[in-house]
Nucleic acid binder design. Structure first.
Lengths: 136, 136
DNA sequence: CTACACCCTGTACCATACTACATAGTCAAG
DNA sequence: CTTGACTATGTAGTATGGTACAGGGTGTAG
């Protein structure tokens, strides 16, 4: 397979060329092989990595978080138990996010229902949506 | 009910005093009543609004987005059909986020399973996690 | 009636995550 | 063998979402 230039990678990953270089500086993407000219040469799999980063950002993960998620496979200095416990912690984070989103979704649905039924929308179900778990 | 000071509100909402004032400037919180001294006076319900903002941020919504979500009930210039169609659009966004998170969760679980089973973790299931819907 | 914690406005600064040059070299089509 | 799109490095600027003063007034407990 012919390697990709930075421009091809960026287009396929849905980000700008500058962003790719930025992610490289920040350690989210490995430094790729180079041609004699200095041009970066990327393999296909970097496209998936780039898309993962983009998606995860939309889900409220910081680049630091995303780096940790991606590091769960790469680092050979971590023991299996370490990897597992980190992954399990991430699973919990993710589950919380899912639940919060489900409450928002439910609230939004309620809003559309109220509306359909011509109930005045003076009350705001969205605000109740996230309350149940807020026990402080 | 006795109104809350900005400090009490901030503590209960889990943010800083400066953040409350910042949200007010940005239009996420309404300008509250004031005492003669100029002190802001908040009602209990603002606590829920503040917590909603905090949570929604963690889920990757921008303040602009959150403002829109909160506006779904307040704006009297919107027709019912408008409110409904906006809410339905938000429901779709939210559903996509939920699905993406579920894929990440699945991938993380797979990671912990592989680990438990002593399978080498050279492959990265996380990277496959978000691919299915990326059809571009 | 005086501490001390809290509030006011305004402005400046900060971290995160890009984004946009400036300046120079590369590559491929015609 | 040139021309135009692309790549390189480096540095500076931007948008978002706060955070931290400075300089002053308020409120209440002892």
């Amino acid at each position: 397979m012919k390697p990709l230039t930075i421009g091809q990678l960026a287009r396929r990953g849905g980000v700008g060329v500058e962003t790719v270089r930025f992610y490289e500086r920040e350690g989210l993407l490995e430094e790729p092989a180079r041609k004699e000219s200095g041009y970066r040469q990327y393999q296909e799999d970097v496209v998936a990595r780039l898309r993962f980063i983009r998606r995860a950002k939309e889900l409220g993960f910081s680049l630091k978080n995303i780096k940790e998620l991606l590091a769960l496979r790469v680092d050979p200095t971590m023991t299996c138990a370490e990897v597992r416990s980190r992954a399990e912690a991430k699973v919990e984070d993710v589950e919380e996010k899912i639940q919060a989103l489900q409450r928002i979704k439910k609230a939004l649905k309620k809003l559309t229902m109220n509306c359909r039924g011509r109930v005045p929308i003076s009350e705001c179900p969205i605000l109740e949506a996230l309350e149940p778990q807020e026990a402080d």
